[in-house]
Nucleic acid binder design. Sequence first.
DNA 1: ATTGTTATATATCAGTCCGATACATCACTT
DNA 2: AAGTGATGTATCGGACTGATATATAACAAT
Lengths: 181, 181
Amino acid sequence: MNVRTLCLGILAFEEASGYEIKKAVEDGMFSHFIEASYGSIYPALTQMLADGLVSVREQVQEGKPLKKAYSITEAGRKALKNSLHELPQQDKFKSEFLFQALFRDQVDPKHLEAVFNEQMDYLCGELATIEECRQSVEPGSGHAFVNGYGHAVVSAAIQYMEESRSSLGLPQKPISSDAAE
Amino acid sequence: MNVRTLCLGILAFEEASGYEIKKAVEDGMFSHFIEASYGSIYPALTQMLADGLVSVREQVQEGKPLKKAYSITEAGRKALKNSLHELPQQDKFKSEFLFQALFRDQVDPKHLEAVFNEQMDYLCGELATIEECRQSVEPGSGHAFVNGYGHAVVSAAIQYMEESRSSLGLPQKPISSDAAE
DNA sequence: ATTGTTATATATCAGTCCGATACATCACTT
DNA sequence: AAGTGATGTATCGGACTGATATATAACAAT
């Protein structure tokens, strides 16, 4: 699946600009299972416009830059439906954190601790985003399933991390900066 | 982090060929949190050889093609250690399965079921790989932590998938081909 | 016998995508 | 008056993927 299909999928829910698509995959509804950069989103929109899969509406906004609001066309919906019936590629998961954790005996304990805490912050942030979205999702929908999947997985990761603190030789949960001692 | 560092990391554990590195990230110890293709592994090894980070030993094998066994050098270990002290990038997770699940009302139920079952197979395969590796890992090591992380996350995914069968309108667990009805 | 498949192994390349950067406008703070 | 941050479009070098080519040998099937 390429970025074009990804954009079509987001536009199938609502009209959006390139900037908004980027936000959706960075922080929004789609953030925990999709990635895409400006360098692929903008060319994808341009190309799909040429192919008639999307249409633009240039919005002149007060106090903000020009915004190109893209909408999916009928041809676009058809193309999306086709893509949805292809066999999906395998999930891809890359974690540099886990890679570093593999060599924990070769890194400075201070670094390990910093990296560990950053990972916890990241995971908790993901969980917060997922829980935010959970409210605006109707039960039984595809959104609900995907949201629940993310919640299950990220929760499990957080719990495992928490349980592993001692076995990694790290100090317990640093709730406030001067609780230890 | 680039593929060069990734290869160095694997070579820090044991001498390996490009083919074996690919296997390690595809099926082995590293498979659930690392990705790399031949198209990046072989150039990485060639370049690192030129830079003196690895050395080769050409093995003439009986009944098999020539094998170039790469080993990490002292300079390579130093370079790896440096890389390990950089801040890791955020985890990346992409799931086309979840993307398709998002549009479950727009896809053929047969397709949804097939895709769902394939995802289950994939996840169970991952779990099996992780459990295989678990045996050959010494407790308390970085390997053990990473292995446990994978186990926690994949187990959670499988459990959630299992619980969601009915809410997606799918038939129950197809253990054998003619158990239903 | 010979065709096909699977496993081992190296290597390349078109196309895709990321990460960084540039540019521009406005709100808000310092 | 300067700096920061959010909104917004756009491009590009370089990294990486996915597919393909090449080669050898074991093994199964026809």
